[in-house]
Design a protein around this nucleic acid. Structure first.
Lengths: 248, 248
DNA sequence: CCTTGACTCTCACGTTACGTGATCCTTTAG
DNA sequence: CTAAAGGATCACGTAACGTGAGAGTCAAGG
C-alpha cells in the first residue's frame, strides 16, 4: 500500500506517515527505487499500535521505545492498552459527574467546593508504561489470583485493573518521600489491601514480595516504568508496613 | 489566590497560567503593584470551562472565541460539554471494542479487515463548536421533539445527541462539494432520518427548515460554527433532497 | 531589622508533532 | 504521449507550553 491509501484507511495524514518514517517510528516495509513508500500488513498493525498509544497520550519517543523494545509483546500491549482506555473512560465518567454537579451547583441545588470543581482534571499525565507484572507472577502464590480473575465479571476485572493503576501512580508520585512517612504507608496500605482482595497474604509474604521487586529484574524493570526507583521504594515501604503490622 | 495555589488546585502548571494570561485567554482579576497575579473565584470558574474545552480538544484560540462570545451562556456550554464528553466516551467504547476484536483476531478466533482495525480512530478532529440549535427551535414544530426527548431515557438522549453531532460534522466535511453530489445527499439523508425520528416532517417542512437556516441568523450563526458556510450548504442540499423525494 | 527560603515575575530560547507550501519527479488512465 | 493524480524532499511555520536564567517580593524567624 502506498501512503495515500494508508492515510485514508487509518485517518492519519500523509505528512504524519512521512514524519513517522523520518523519526524512525514506522519505516515502510519497502521503498521502491523511485522512492515511494510501500507499507505492508505488518506495518499497518504497528501503526494501529502506535495510534492506540498515541491516543493514550504517549509521546512518539515513548512509543518508539515501547514498540522497539526487544521483548515487546503485542498481546500484552493490547491488554495494557485496553486497561488504559478503560481508565480513560473512567476519567471521562468522573468529568461528566463533575459537569452534572456543576450544573446543579449553578442551579443552586447544591454547593461545590473549588476542589470539587476540578476533581475531574487529575490527569494522570505522567505517562508511564505498565506491562503489568501480574502476568509474570508465576512465582508467588499469585497465580491463584488469575484463577480468581477468571471467575470475575468483566466489569469487576476492569475496576481492579484501574485500581491497580491508580495505586501504582500514587506510589510513583510519593516515591521521593521516606518509605516510613505517613503518606507512603497510607499508599502502601492500599497496595496491601488490593493484593489481599486477590488472594490473602501473610505479612511475611508481602515483605518477601517487596524484596522480589528489587531482586528480580523483570519486576524491577516493569515497576520502574511507573517511575525510576519505584521498585526500591515499594520494597522499603512494604517492609516497614509488614514489620509494623506484624508487631501489633 | 496566587498562581501556585491555583496551579495546585487545578492541576495546571504555573507556566500554563502565565501562558493563558499572555494570550489573553485568562487574565487574573487583579494584579498587585508588584506584578503578582491574583485570581478570583470567577477566574476559577472560567478556568474550569477552559479545561473542559481543552480536554475536548479545542484549540486555545477556539476556546477564547467561545468564552469571550458576547452571548456565551455557561449553562448552555456545560450542557454542550456534557454531550461532547459523552461522545468522547462513546469513542473510547468503540476503541475498546476494537481492541477486544483485535485480541480475538490475534488469537485466531475471528478475522478482521484492515478497515475494522482502524474503526476506532475516526477522530472527529475538526473541533467545531456546537451550541446546538435544538434549544432554539422554539419556532418550528420542533418543540414536540423536546417533549419527546423528555420522555426518553438518558441513554437514548445521549445517543441522539451524539448522532446529531456526527451528522453535523460529516456535513461540515462535505460542504465544499456541490449540494446535489452523491455524498452530500447521502449525508443530508441522515439528517432527514434523524429529524424524522424526533417528529415527522413533510418534505415541504424539511425544505423550509433549510431555508430558515440561512434566513434566521440565529440558526446561521450556530450552524456555521461547525464550519463556514455550512448553513448555506445545508439549505441547498435539503432543498435538492426534498424536491427529489417529492418528485418520486 | 535583617536574613532566608519559598514564591513570583519577565525574557527568551527549546520542544513536540505535525501543517503548509514550493518545487520537482513518477505513475497511470485516456 | 500527455495530463492529472499522487509521491518525494526540503524547509519554514505553528501551537502550547517546558525549561532555565536572572531578578524582585514576601512572610517567618533569629
Amino acid at each position: 500500500m502506498k501512503v495515500k491509501e494508508v492515510a485514508e484507511l487509518t485517518g492519519v495524514s500523509v505528512r504524519t506517515l512521512h514524519h513517522y518514517d523520518e523519526i524512525g517510528l514506522l519505516k515502510p516495509e519497502e521503498v521502491t527505487e523511485s522512492g515511494y513508500r510501500i507499507y505492508s500488513a505488518a506495518n499497518l498493525e504497528t501503526l494501529q499500535q502506535i495510534l492506540f498509544f498515541r491516543e493514550l497520550g504517549f509521546s512518539l519517543g515513548k512509543i518508539k521505545e515501547i514498540i522497539t523494545d526487544l521483548d515487546y509483546d503485542r498481546n500484552e500491549a493490547l491488554a495494557l492498552q485496553r486497561r488504559m482506555l478503560v481508565d480513560r473512560r473512567g476519567q471521562l465518567d468522573r468529568m461528566i459527574e463533575v459537569i452534572d454537579q456543576t450544573i446543579r451547583h449553578y442551579k443552586g441545588e447544591i454547593h461545590m467546593s473549588d476542589k470539587e470543581k476540578f476533581a475531574g482534571f487529575d490527569f494522570t499525565k505522567g505517562n508511564l508504561y505498565e506491562k503489568e507484572a501480574r502476568q509474570r507472577w508465576g512465582d508467588e502464590a499469585v497465580n491463584r489470583s488469575n484463577a480468581q480473575l477468571g471467575a470475575m465479571s468483566k466489569e469487576e476485572q476492569e475496576k481492579l485493573g484501574q485500581e491497580m493503576n491508580d495505586i501504582y501512580f500514587k506510589l510513583a508520585d510519593l516515591r521521593q518521600l521516606p518509605p516510613e512517612s505517613e503518606e507512603a504507608q497510607a499508599a502502601i496500605k492500599l497496595w496491601w489491601e488490593y493484593l489481599n482482595r486477590m488472594g490473602s497474604y501473610s505479612y511475611e509474604a508481602f515483605k518477601n514480595l517487596g524484596q522480589m521487586y528489587v531482586d528480580d529484574e523483570r519486576f524491577t524493570k516493569n515497576i520502574d516504568k511507573f517511575g525510576e526507583g519505584l521498585a526500591l521504594f515499594m520494597r522499603d515501604a512494604m517492609a516497614v508496613f509488614a514489620d509494623r503490622a506484624a508487631a501489633e
